[in-house]
């Protein structure tokens, strides 16, 4: 009956979003008076998960396969969940988590709930709160099936340290069921990815051209933040598509989102709404972003941002 969490790693490090998933899984396991089982793939040492309430850490050796494999991971997870008699399998809402979700849910013959916010509202039947309409609303969804796969929205629960038993085990890596091969992976040059970032600095058309992006990049560097942009900025090729955020781009759920020269169109706001604190810098006091932001400066980006960068540099001792 245990609760299962899928833990993602990168370069032998556990991702922050997965620590949140473990903390969330622990809270559910407590509510259900059962144990928490974490599954990792190719992680040499998962014992750190003990501090986040995990009772059993199952590592699956991936036979030298170095890339994420939705097919084999999902088969493996479904099998482990089956063996454990689990009803709930929890994954993060990272790109890989959301990729895995519908596939593992189908193999595990369960309901799949994406964009879940907070703990279940009831367990029998399982009811959860989910965001929908790109964060413009929420709904309460109830599963008709006893088994459910939950994909937890980033930053919606938090990371909580708590002692678990921390037993270490291994399980077998399931065989492939289909023909889809990763040939190579190209890491983007950005130091921090939008999905993992605590702080995101975003630039819009108000920056006038790609030659001015040092403002966004320098600010991001001082704050250890990821860089993002509005849709027209990526459509015009000023910035790569991977930086486009919003309804048709990447979702942002950071702690701090600073928008510079972005008007705040409804499609832009939809994608960044779930960021906790929003700051806007725009020279037009009528820009719609001021209605959505927590803090705002009406001013010229070309004057405000350099000053902000130099003051933050002093503050951060850089």
């Amino acid at each position: 009956m245990s609760v299962i969490v899928y833990i993602e790693t990168q370069d032998q490090e556990i991702k922050k979003s997965s620590l949140e998933v473990a903390s969330y899984g622990r809270a559910i396991a407590d509510a259900q008076e059962t144990s928490l089982v974490a599954v990792t793939f190719g992680l040499e040492n998962g014992s750190a998960l003990k501090q986040y309430g995990v009772d059993t850490i199952i590592n699956v050796p991936t036979e030298g396969e170095q890339y994420f494999n939705a097919d084999r991971y999902s088969s493996t997870l479904a099998k482990i969940a089956d063996n454990e008699g689990a009803k709930l399998l929890i994954i993060s809402s990272s790109a890989n988590g959301r990729y895995l979700g519908p596939i593992v849910a189908t193999k595990f013959q369960s309901t799949y709930f994406s964009n879940v916010i907070g703990l279940p509202l009831s367990y029998d039947p399982l009811t959860v709160k989910r965001s929908c309409f790109t964060n413009k609303a929420f709904n309460q969804s109830t599963s008709q099936k006893a088994r459910v796969v939950i994909s937890l929205s980033s930053n919606s629960f938090g990371i909580i340290e708590k002692d678990g038993k921390g037993d270490l085990k291994t399980a077998e890596y399931a065989a492939s069921t289909c023909d889809l091969r990763v040939e190579s992976v190209e890491k983007s040059s950005n130091k921090v990815s939008i999905a993992d970032a605590e702080i995101v600095i975003s630039g819009g058309r108000g920056l006038k051209g790609p030659e001015n992006w040092h403002l966004i990049e320098d600010l991001a560097t001082v704050l250890g933040a990821a860089t993002a942009c509005s849709k027209p900025v990526s459509d015009m090729g000023w910035r790569p598509h991977s930086e486009h955020v919003g309804q048709t781009g990447k979702p942002v759920a950071s702690n701090l989102y600073i928008a510079i020269g972005v008007s705040g169109a409804i499609q832009h706001l939809a994608g960044i709404n779930s960021s906790k604190v929003k700051v806007v810098i725009n020279n037009d006091p009528e820009a719609p972003f001021f209605k959505a932001a927590d803090y705002g400066i009406v001013g010229d980006a070309f004057e405000v941002v350099p000053e902000l960068i130099s003051k933050l540099k002093v503050l951060k001792g850089a």
Binding site: F138, N139, T142, N273, V279, Y295, G296, V304
Partner: peptide
Amino acid sequence: AGSSIESFEKPPAKGPVKLIDSSNIDGLI
């Protein structure tokens, strides 16, 4: 179907933005 939606809700209304003068960057920080 595997699931059903019981109800919808909208996020709570947000308070007004706090405006900081462009000459007061320290205030923002």
